[in-house]
Nucleic acid binder design. Structure first.
Lengths: 213, 213
DNA sequence: CCTCCCCTCAACCGTTCGGTGGAGGTCTGC
DNA sequence: GCAGACCTCCACCGAACGGTTGAGGGGAGG
């Protein structure tokens, strides 16, 4: 029996996962958490083999952070030989956080519209130490490694873009970030190039589509 | 026993709802549909008292359309005395479609992060013919009736705004809509006033927040 | 019929943006 | 130590945008 901890802020989804997993007869749900904080508190006592975690946890710490912390719990914490595998569950395929979670050490990710069989299989695979990636992300990771066809915005560029999204003028952004207007324009021009657009509104839309904002 | 039909494109959510509802002992799940089309096909034979419907059904016809059609099935269809009550289930509180669904005759709406008790209560209330509205929308409906503090964008303004969101220039929008650039600017100025902003990027953001795009 | 709303267009103005081509600074990693 | 990335800033230009006023036509509804 694979010991699983469910982490999702929706009670209904937790019930559904529990029903789906227990129906397989191969999985034992050893706990449920409605937030990242709860999950972190439960891991030591519940000692799951696999943590099935929603990325979008509403208020509180997010799924990526929770994943990082769970995987950081070394052998020192209680008697666990090693931290549990973390399997990411998410609604949207185009969530930039997925990449971050996998880079943080998650064993894979699943879409919420997956079939019960697919979910059960993925849990079993994660318990065996394997990695499970749905197609979309696999492609994205490969392409990111191979050729950075989707360039990364620098922190400063992102910061500027966030203010642009609010409808701020370059002057306002400059004041907010304590830099000159020229600097703001430079950041924006760079962001335009990276996003493949030629104006601020398009940049905001593309950034949103890629989950950068 | 209240007869309920579940409509959601996520198998996990359907399982969760089934588990939650059947645990109350007052509800019988008489069917599950993964799409609007399936739901419409199942209603006559399953004869539910209440249809619990997700607004976001992925591909195919959407939740609002499905709701409209279900409620349009009069006594002519089979032996049903009247169409079932439709209870909307949605993830986001700020979805403009909620208002449309309620206007289409839905008996109320629930958020997916609601507690099992709240969901069961809402289903029971809907079966009794009552209306259940979560707080957010109730306020919105009231305020929309009382004072249009949240003005409505005209169809043309929305159309322009959608193109703006893609990063199109006024000139490009004018060409796309076969009007002059002056007209585009007029629409935009009106939209800015209604949305309480003073530039296109801010307008897009506010419109997105309000679920208008 | 007359009003109200929506869509359409024009001309003019000042402001803001987008694009270019620089330049100097810090910090990281090889 | 030096390349490379990142952040900072300047000056200039044309293009696009935001704001205003004014105006005409069509459809819905009292």
């Amino acid at each position: 029996m694979v010991r699983v901890l469910l982490v999702d802020d929706h009670p209904v989804v937790r019930s559904g996962l529990r029903a789906v997993l227990e129906a397989t007869g191969r999985v034992e749900v050893v706990g449920e958490a409605a937030s990242g904080e709860q999950a972190l508190a439960l891991v030591p006592s519940a000692r799951p083999d696999v943590v099935l975690m929603d990325l979008n946890l509403g208020d509180g710490i997010d799924g990526v952070t929770t994943t990082t912390r769970i995987l950081a719990t070394g052998p020192t914490t209680l008697g666990a030989a090693r931290p549990p595998a973390v399997l990411i569950l998410t609604t949207y395929d185009h969530d930039a956080d997925i990449v971050r979670a996998v880079e943080a050490g998650a064993s894979g990710y699943l879409l919420k519209d997956a079939s019960p069989e697919a979910i059960a299989d993925a849990v079993a695979a994660a318990a065996r130490g394997e990695t499970v990636l749905a197609s979309g992300l696999a492609q994205r990771l490969v392409s990111r490694m191979r050729a950075p066809s989707e360039p990364t915005l620098t922190p400063r560029e992102l910061e500027v873009l966030r203010l642009v999204a609010d409808g701020s003028s370059n002057r306002a952004i400059a004041r907010a970030l304590f830099v000159s207007e020229a600097t703001v324009k430079t950041h924006l021009v760079h962001a335009y190039e990276k996003l493949g657009v030629d104006n601020r509104t398009g940049a905001v839309t593309v950034a949103r589509e890629r989950g950068l904002l």
